[in-house]
């Protein structure tokens, strides 16, 4: 029993020393060495996983295909009937895209990044990217794809790599605005599966399904106008001061391979 106690004590001391040396920065050469060996394999396997899991257009049975065809046909008919409304929406969309095309028109610097891996710990929803503090990446910086679609924020920065916390991570919180009449503000939180939830929206404000949600710019390092998603459902409870909205993100988190980190955002 005594031997076991000393074994446990010795291992605990080794663990404590390892953790201490990490925070003092003395473990960096060892960490860099392991990353140097593991990163290429991680990047290759992540790229393969994106390829393998891209089953968007596949149908397993003819019934699925028939159902999809019927659904698309119904949608086409609805679109034909609402052509005028669609043209208006297209113009609004074009204006919104021009407004949100901030990487080209605004004075934000961005760093192009490549995703080399994703979360190992199953309790997180994160991506690992190939840029770090050496390239100017800072904690809290937003990560976007396309023309301003927010994917997440930088959660951890090392010298040559960083970790992005995706919007659907349970620790993710982003201040956002709904593009509605009242310009309702709220907090986008993850941890709800493939959707995210916008909380703390004042009960008195009117939000509709399909309303676009963008970042509000009310937090540090996060500019206003980054696309987050569209309202999928609204949850209201009587006598509560706030309502919630389920948001379907525009970004496909499991298909991100290339993105940009915004830096020097004021």
């Amino acid at each position: 029993m005594r031997k076991k106690f000393f074994t446990l004590l010795a291992i605990s001391i080794v663990l404590a020393i390892t953790i201490l040396t990490h925070y003092l920065g003395w473990l960096k050469p060892v960490e860099s060495f392991f990353r140097y060996i593991v990163n290429p394999g991680s990047k290759a396997m992540y790229a393969l996983s994106v390829k393998i899991n891209n089953t968007e257009e596949e149908f397993t049975t003819s019934e699925d295909l028939l159902e999809a065809y019927k659904k698309i046909k119904d949608e086409w008919l609805k679109n034909k009937i609402n052509e005028v409304e669609l043209e208006t929406l297209r113009q609004d969309n074009e204006n919104l895209r021009q407004e949100l095309n901030f990487i080209k028109t605004k004075n934000y610097d961005s760093i192009g990044i490549e995703v080399i891996g994703k979360n190992i710990d199953p309790t997180e929803s994160t991506l690992i990217i190939n840029r770090g503090s050496k390239d100017g990446v800072r904690e809290g910086s937003p990560v976007v794809v396309g023309n301003g679609i927010l994917v997440g924020k930088i959660a951890k920065v090392e010298e040559k790599i960083s970790v992005v916390r995706l919007l659907d991570d349970n620790q993710s919180k982003v201040a956002a605005t709904v593009i509605n009449y009242e310009k309702s503000v709220g907090l986008i939180e993850g941890g709800y599966g493939i959707s995210v939830q916008m909380n703390f929206i004042p009960q008195s404000e009117s939000i509709g399904v399909g309303d676009i949600v963008v970042t509000s710019g009310l937090e540090e390092k996060m500019p206003r106008g980054l696309l987050v998603g569209a309202v999928q459902a609204v949850e209201k409870e009587a006598h509560q001061p706030f309502q919630k909205a389920v948001i379907k993100p525009f970004a496909k988190f499991d298909k991100v391979t290339i993105a940009s980190v915004l830096i020097n955002v004021e």
Binding site: T18, I19, R35, V38, S42, N119, T123, T126, E158, V163
Partner: peptide, 13 residues
């Protein structure tokens, strides 16, 4: 697990 720690956002250790 030391290698795995390098790829998570959980506090080191």
């Amino acid at each position: 697990h030391l290698i795995i720690e390098l790829y998570t956002t959980a506090p080191f250790g």
